[in-house]
Design a protein around this nucleic acid. Structure first.
Lengths: 148, 148
DNA sequence: GCAAATTAGTTCGGATTGCCAACCATTGTC
DNA sequence: GACAATGGTTGGCAATCCGAACTAATTTGC
């Protein structure tokens, strides 16, 4: 029976997850996006992506993604383009508006998280980054991009 | 413009949040709970809590919480008890079933997160815990319990 | 003491999210 | 050229969330 620290390791992870999620939700809301829409936009900043790839990155069923894309498209954030090589497939790409808001939101999330970690010495941050890298890869590469 | 590491600090945080969230969702599902219900149950393990306190912990509007508690109660996980001192208020408490599944789910989440972090040396984990502690408190104490 | 403001929860309507099963169209296989 | 596999959409359903309006009990102000 070892004496536990104030917060157990796993509880700290969960807390951190909540914190990040909350920041993300706030920023999304301020940009008039739902968190899911914001996440979708962030996955598209490096160029158009097909629906099937997106379902893997977002861990959604195809039908769920159809709806998400529909609503994002209705708001003019995103557009469907037919894939020339495979006429079943389509590629989702950002509109000008979509790109603008995606970049802004991403930057704002980064800004706020950095602010929360302002007290943290640089070495600790880097250590945390490498630790996360290990944990994420321990689960298999999940999908592309920054994920923000 | 400093050269950034492979993964920026904030991106690592976001990735980690996704990872934790996913583990949490999986475990919830395996126990036939929605993530929200699981989170609710975890907030109740230390004893009954009033609706208003819960809205603060969960960052939900009162009306949203009413629905969440309704559905949890319908499934027999939770019960409303009238507060003796304030007859407007009620306190939400776990049923036997609810407590059982809450504990199981919490343990399972902890187990899987520990497994993902198995490679991590103990000092790094502790450092991460203290770092999280700092970030969380930088935002003000959010709510009680382990949060799992 | 009692009207007015506050606080605790609920109800209602609406948008979003997510799943599953069934479906259409295109592509690939034999 | 039939048949399976792949890429997406549609429809139905439950859960989640919000905001506004509401009821009931408590507290405040005078």
């Amino acid at each position: 029976m070892t004496r536990q620290p104030v917060l157990r390791f796993t509880d700290a992870l969960v807390r951190l997850a909540h914190l990040v999620q909350q920041v993300f939700a706030e920023v999304s809301k301020e940009h008039d996006l739902t968190p899911q829409q914001a996440q979708l936009l962030c996955l598209l900043v490096d160029g158009p992506v097909g629906m099937t790839d997106l379902t893997r990155s977002l861990h959604l069923e195809k039908s769920s993604l159809t709806g998400l894309v529909d609503r994002a498209a209705r708001r003019g954030l995103v557009a469907r383009t037919r894939d020339a090589r495979d006429r079943r497939a389509c590629r989702i790409e950002l509109s000008g508006d979509g790109r603008r808001v995606a970049v802004l939101a991403h930057e704002e999330v980064a800004r706020r998280l950095e602010a929360l970690a302002a007290e943290l010495p640089e070495e600790h941050k880097e250590l945390l980054v490498s630790a996360v890298g290990g944990m994420v890869s321990a689960r298999g590469p999940q999908g592309g991009g920054s994920g923000t």
